[in-house]
């Protein structure tokens, strides 16, 4: 199978992101092969998810 892609102009004003966590990717560019994996185990009683990400006070 032949897969042909034609990319035209791509222009973004601004990106505002709160968090990029557990095997996440923010990519400004092209990629050939992307493989992202995350395994997450938590008891049903757990209330907090994710690792500590940012200081609470900014």
């Amino acid at each position: 199978m032949r897969f042909q892609v034609i990319n035209h102009e791509l222009s973004v004003g601004s990106l505002k992101i709160v968090g990029v966590s557990i095997s996440s990717l923010v990519l400004v560019g092209d990629a050939g092969h992307i493989s992202l994996a995350s395994i997450f185990d938590t008891p049903p009683e757990a209330l907090v998810v994710g690792t500590s990400l940012v200081p609470l006070a900014l």
């Binding site: 992101i17 709160v18 968090g19 923010v26 690792t51 900014l58």
Partner: peptide, 11 residues
Amino acid sequence: IDILGISAAGI
């Protein structure tokens, strides 16, 4: 690009 935090194998 404005990001608060990148954590745990984030890119």
